[in-house]
Simulated scan of single mutants.
Amino acid sequence: MPDLSSFPITKRWPAADPSVIQLYSFPTPNGVKASIMLEETGLPYEAHKVTLADADVKSPEFLSLNPNNKIPAIIDPNGPDGAPIGLFESGAILLYLGEKTGKFIGQTASDKAHITQWLMFQMGGIGPMFGQLGFFYKFAGADIEDPRPRERYVNEAKRLLAVLEGQLAGRDWIAGEYSIADIAIAPWLRGLDFYEAREVVGWDDNKNVTAYLDRFLDRPAVQTGLVTPPRD
Protein backbone atom coordinates (compact mmCIF):
# COMPACT_ATOMS: atom_id res chain seq x y z
CA MET A 1 0.00 0.00 0.00
CA PRO A 2 1.53 3.36 -0.97
CA ASP A 3 2.49 5.66 1.89
CA LEU A 4 1.11 9.19 1.43
CA SER A 5 2.09 10.39 4.91
CA SER A 6 4.69 12.74 3.43
CA PHE A 7 1.84 14.82 1.97
CA PRO A 8 0.40 17.00 4.76
CA ILE A 9 -2.82 17.49 2.77
CA THR A 10 -3.80 13.91 3.60
CA LYS A 11 -4.09 14.84 7.26
CA ARG A 12 -6.96 17.22 6.52
CA TRP A 13 -8.42 15.19 3.65
CA PRO A 14 -7.52 11.58 4.51
CA ALA A 15 -7.26 8.99 1.76
CA ALA A 16 -9.72 6.14 2.14
CA ASP A 17 -7.72 4.21 -0.47
CA PRO A 18 -4.15 5.55 -0.77
CA SER A 19 -3.48 3.23 -3.71
CA VAL A 20 -5.55 5.38 -6.09
CA ILE A 21 -5.16 8.94 -7.37
CA GLN A 22 -6.27 11.54 -4.86
CA LEU A 23 -8.15 14.48 -6.38
CA TYR A 24 -8.58 17.72 -4.45
CA SER A 25 -11.05 19.88 -6.29
CA PHE A 26 -14.35 21.70 -6.63
CA PRO A 27 -16.68 21.74 -9.69
CA THR A 28 -15.52 24.97 -11.33
CA PRO A 29 -14.44 25.19 -15.01
CA ASN A 30 -10.85 24.50 -13.95
CA GLY A 31 -11.73 21.94 -11.32
CA VAL A 32 -13.81 19.72 -13.58
CA LYS A 33 -10.99 19.40 -16.09
CA ALA A 34 -9.28 16.98 -13.74
CA SER A 35 -12.39 15.01 -12.78
CA ILE A 36 -13.53 14.71 -16.42
CA MET A 37 -10.08 13.50 -17.48
CA LEU A 38 -10.02 10.94 -14.70
CA GLU A 39 -13.46 9.71 -15.73
CA GLU A 40 -12.52 9.60 -19.42
CA THR A 41 -9.32 7.65 -18.81
CA GLY A 42 -10.90 5.23 -16.35
CA LEU A 43 -8.11 5.72 -13.82
CA PRO A 44 -9.27 4.86 -10.29
CA TYR A 45 -9.40 7.93 -8.09
CA GLU A 46 -10.84 9.37 -4.93
CA ALA A 47 -12.32 12.87 -4.93
CA HIS A 48 -12.00 15.26 -2.00
CA LYS A 49 -14.07 18.44 -1.94
CA VAL A 50 -11.89 21.49 -1.42
CA THR A 51 -14.12 24.54 -1.39
CA LEU A 52 -13.01 27.94 -2.67
CA ALA A 53 -13.21 29.35 0.84
CA ASP A 54 -9.94 30.59 2.33
CA ALA A 55 -10.37 28.06 5.14
CA ASP A 56 -9.77 25.34 2.56
CA VAL A 57 -7.61 26.68 -0.28
CA LYS A 58 -5.43 28.79 2.01
CA SER A 59 -5.09 26.16 4.70
CA PRO A 60 -1.54 24.98 5.42
CA GLU A 61 -2.50 21.49 4.32
CA PHE A 62 -3.73 22.55 0.89
CA LEU A 63 -0.88 25.03 0.40
CA SER A 64 1.56 22.20 1.05
CA LEU A 65 0.39 20.65 -2.22
CA ASN A 66 -0.42 23.82 -4.15
CA PRO A 67 1.31 26.98 -2.96
CA ASN A 68 -0.80 28.92 -5.49
CA ASN A 69 -3.96 28.07 -3.44
CA LYS A 70 -6.06 27.09 -6.47
CA ILE A 71 -7.94 23.89 -7.24
CA PRO A 72 -7.50 21.31 -8.69
CA ALA A 73 -4.54 19.36 -7.39
CA ILE A 74 -3.77 15.65 -7.35
CA ILE A 75 -1.54 13.09 -5.74
CA ASP A 76 -0.70 10.05 -7.84
CA PRO A 77 0.57 7.29 -5.54
CA ASN A 78 2.04 5.54 -8.58
CA GLY A 79 4.21 8.30 -9.99
CA PRO A 80 6.43 7.99 -13.06
CA ASP A 81 9.58 7.45 -10.98
CA GLY A 82 8.11 4.77 -8.75
CA ALA A 83 7.15 7.17 -5.97
CA PRO A 84 4.05 9.27 -5.28
CA ILE A 85 3.88 12.63 -7.03
CA GLY A 86 1.80 15.70 -6.28
CA LEU A 87 0.71 18.11 -9.00
CA PHE A 88 -1.25 21.33 -9.33
CA GLU A 89 -2.37 23.49 -12.31
CA SER A 90 -5.20 21.99 -14.35
CA GLY A 91 -3.32 22.06 -17.65
CA ALA A 92 -0.33 20.28 -16.14
CA ILE A 93 -2.64 17.67 -14.65
CA LEU A 94 -4.28 17.05 -18.05
CA LEU A 95 -0.89 16.62 -19.71
CA TYR A 96 0.33 14.33 -16.93
CA LEU A 97 -2.73 12.07 -17.01
CA GLY A 98 -2.61 12.02 -20.80
CA GLU A 99 1.03 10.90 -20.73
CA LYS A 100 0.32 8.37 -17.99
CA THR A 101 -2.46 6.68 -19.94
CA GLY A 102 -1.54 7.48 -23.54
CA LYS A 103 -5.08 8.80 -24.00
CA PHE A 104 -6.42 12.07 -25.41
CA ILE A 105 -3.00 13.52 -26.27
CA GLY A 106 -2.76 12.33 -29.89
CA GLN A 107 -1.07 9.40 -31.56
CA THR A 108 1.97 11.21 -32.99
CA ALA A 109 4.32 13.96 -31.90
CA SER A 110 2.61 16.29 -34.38
CA ASP A 111 -0.81 15.42 -32.92
CA LYS A 112 0.44 16.17 -29.44
CA ALA A 113 1.92 19.50 -30.51
CA HIS A 114 -1.37 20.61 -32.07
CA ILE A 115 -3.38 19.46 -29.07
CA THR A 116 -0.99 21.20 -26.69
CA GLN A 117 -1.27 24.48 -28.56
CA TRP A 118 -5.04 24.48 -28.11
CA LEU A 119 -4.63 23.55 -24.45
CA MET A 120 -2.39 26.61 -24.10
CA PHE A 121 -5.00 28.68 -25.95
CA GLN A 122 -7.41 27.85 -23.16
CA MET A 123 -4.92 28.34 -20.35
CA GLY A 124 -3.64 31.68 -21.62
CA GLY A 125 -6.75 33.00 -23.34
CA ILE A 126 -10.19 31.58 -22.68
CA GLY A 127 -9.70 30.88 -18.98
CA PRO A 128 -8.34 34.23 -17.80
CA MET A 129 -10.36 36.31 -20.26
CA PHE A 130 -13.68 34.61 -19.52
CA GLY A 131 -12.91 34.81 -15.81
CA GLN A 132 -12.41 38.56 -16.07
CA LEU A 133 -15.59 38.81 -18.12
CA GLY A 134 -17.46 37.13 -15.28
CA PHE A 135 -15.95 39.48 -12.71
CA PHE A 136 -16.76 42.67 -14.60
CA TYR A 137 -20.10 41.54 -16.01
CA LYS A 138 -21.71 39.59 -13.15
CA PHE A 139 -19.73 39.90 -9.95
CA ALA A 140 -18.12 42.72 -7.95
CA GLY A 141 -16.60 44.44 -10.97
CA ALA A 142 -20.08 44.99 -12.41
CA ASP A 143 -20.48 47.87 -9.93
CA ILE A 144 -17.63 49.83 -11.49
CA GLU A 145 -19.10 52.78 -13.37
CA ASP A 146 -16.34 52.96 -15.97
CA PRO A 147 -17.63 50.78 -18.85
CA ARG A 148 -14.21 50.12 -20.37
CA PRO A 149 -13.28 47.01 -18.35
CA ARG A 150 -16.57 45.32 -19.23
CA GLU A 151 -16.26 46.32 -22.88
CA ARG A 152 -12.71 45.01 -23.03
CA TYR A 153 -13.57 41.55 -21.74
CA VAL A 154 -16.85 41.29 -23.64
CA ASN A 155 -15.00 42.07 -26.86
CA GLU A 156 -12.17 39.70 -26.04
CA ALA A 157 -14.64 36.91 -25.27
CA LYS A 158 -16.31 37.53 -28.62
CA ARG A 159 -12.94 37.38 -30.36
CA LEU A 160 -11.99 34.11 -28.68
CA LEU A 161 -15.35 32.58 -29.56
CA ALA A 162 -14.77 33.60 -33.17
CA VAL A 163 -11.42 31.79 -33.13
CA LEU A 164 -13.13 28.63 -31.89
CA GLU A 165 -15.98 29.03 -34.36
CA GLY A 166 -13.52 29.06 -37.24
CA GLN A 167 -11.45 26.17 -35.91
CA LEU A 168 -14.54 24.00 -35.46
CA ALA A 169 -15.73 24.44 -39.04
CA GLY A 170 -15.89 20.88 -40.37
CA ARG A 171 -14.58 19.39 -37.11
CA ASP A 172 -16.30 17.71 -34.20
CA TRP A 173 -13.39 18.42 -31.86
CA ILE A 174 -10.96 21.30 -31.60
CA ALA A 175 -7.84 19.41 -32.74
CA GLY A 176 -9.67 16.91 -34.97
CA GLU A 177 -9.96 14.14 -32.38
CA TYR A 178 -11.32 14.35 -28.84
CA SER A 179 -8.47 15.41 -26.59
CA ILE A 180 -7.32 17.20 -23.49
CA ALA A 181 -7.80 20.44 -25.43
CA ASP A 182 -11.56 19.83 -25.46
CA ILE A 183 -11.55 18.85 -21.80
CA ALA A 184 -9.89 22.20 -21.07
CA ILE A 185 -11.93 24.43 -23.38
CA ALA A 186 -15.51 23.19 -23.16
CA PRO A 187 -16.04 23.66 -19.39
CA TRP A 188 -15.17 27.33 -19.80
CA LEU A 189 -17.72 27.70 -22.60
CA ARG A 190 -20.29 26.24 -20.24
CA GLY A 191 -19.17 28.83 -17.70
CA LEU A 192 -20.60 31.64 -19.84
CA ASP A 193 -24.04 30.49 -18.76
CA PHE A 194 -23.02 30.77 -15.10
CA TYR A 195 -21.77 34.29 -15.79
CA GLU A 196 -25.13 35.08 -17.47
CA ALA A 197 -23.05 36.39 -20.36
CA ARG A 198 -24.16 34.29 -23.33
CA GLU A 199 -26.32 37.00 -24.84
CA VAL A 200 -23.77 39.80 -24.46
CA VAL A 201 -21.04 37.78 -26.24
CA GLY A 202 -23.34 36.67 -29.07
CA TRP A 203 -23.32 32.99 -28.11
CA ASP A 204 -26.12 31.98 -30.48
CA ASP A 205 -24.23 33.40 -33.45
CA ASN A 206 -21.55 30.73 -33.05
CA LYS A 207 -23.30 27.65 -34.40
CA ASN A 208 -20.18 25.48 -34.52
CA VAL A 209 -19.33 26.31 -30.92
CA THR A 210 -22.84 25.68 -29.60
CA ALA A 211 -23.00 22.29 -31.33
CA TYR A 212 -19.52 21.49 -30.02
CA LEU A 213 -20.53 22.15 -26.43
CA ASP A 214 -23.62 19.99 -26.85
CA ARG A 215 -21.45 17.10 -28.10
CA PHE A 216 -19.14 17.52 -25.16
CA LEU A 217 -21.95 17.56 -22.61
CA ASP A 218 -23.43 14.38 -24.11
CA ARG A 219 -20.41 12.32 -23.06
CA PRO A 220 -21.14 10.14 -19.99
CA ALA A 221 -17.69 10.77 -18.50
CA VAL A 222 -18.25 14.51 -18.81
CA GLN A 223 -21.62 14.30 -17.09
CA THR A 224 -20.03 12.53 -14.12
CA GLY A 225 -16.96 14.73 -14.04
CA LEU A 226 -19.02 17.91 -13.97
CA VAL A 227 -20.47 16.98 -10.58
CA THR A 228 -17.30 15.50 -9.02
CA PRO A 229 -16.76 16.14 -6.22
CA PRO A 230 -20.34 17.12 -5.39
CA ARG A 231 -20.88 20.70 -4.28
CA ASP A 232 -22.98 19.54 -1.32
Rank of each mutant, 00 (worst) to 15 (best):
V20S: 03
W188S: 08
S19P: 14
A73G: 09
G86S: 02
F136D: 12
L4N: 06
G170A: 11
P14W: 09
W118N: 13
N78A: 13
E61H: 00
A16Y: 00
D81W: 00
D76A: 08
V154D: 09
G131C: 08
A83T: 12
D204W: 04
I71R: 04
I105L: 10
A16K: 14
L94R: 15
P14R: 02
A113G: 09
G131N: 08
E145V: 14
T224V: 13
V201F: 01
E177F: 13
G225L: 02
W173A: 03
A53F: 09
D182S: 14
A73N: 00
A34T: 12
T101E: 12
D204R: 08
V32A: 07
Y96T: 13
F121G: 11
Y212G: 06
Q117N: 15
L65K: 07
G170I: 15
R219N: 11
A169H: 09
Q132G: 12
K49L: 10
G191V: 12
E196T: 12
L95T: 08
G91I: 09
L43T: 10
S179M: 07
T51F: 01
A73S: 08
D204E: 15
D111M: 10
L226H: 11
F26C: 01
G141Y: 04
M123F: 07
L133V: 04
K33V: 13
G79S: 05
Q223I: 04
Y178I: 10
P8A: 11
Q117L: 10
Q223M: 04
N155R: 08
L189G: 01
L4V: 03
P8T: 11
D3P: 03
K138E: 05
P44D: 06
D3E: 11
F136S: 08
N66V: 07
V222I: 12
K58A: 00
Y24T: 05
F104T: 12
A186E: 07
A34Y: 05
N69F: 07
F135I: 13
I126V: 07
E46N: 07
G176Y: 02
N66I: 02
A55V: 00
D111Q: 08
P44L: 02
V154N: 14
L189W: 13
G131M: 05
A109S: 15
L97P: 12
Y45E: 07
L65T: 05
N78P: 06
L160G: 03
L94Y: 01
E40C: 08
I174K: 05
M123L: 15
P84G: 04
I174S: 03
E151D: 14
L87W: 06
G102E: 10
F104Y: 15
A142Y: 01
G127C: 13
G106Y: 11
Y96K: 11
A73T: 00
K112D: 09
T41K: 11
G98S: 13
V222M: 14
V57H: 02
W13R: 06
A83Y: 05
P77W: 01
S90C: 10
E61Y: 00
P77C: 02
A142M: 06
V227R: 15
E89I: 01
L38Y: 04
S25R: 03
F136M: 13
P149L: 04
V227F: 12
S25K: 02
T224S: 12
A181W: 10
S5F: 05
L38C: 07
I36R: 06
P80H: 00
G42D: 07
D205P: 04
G124M: 05
Y137V: 14
I21Q: 05
S5M: 11
L65C: 03
H48R: 10
M129N: 12
P149C: 02
L94K: 15
K11W: 12
Y24E: 00
W203T: 06
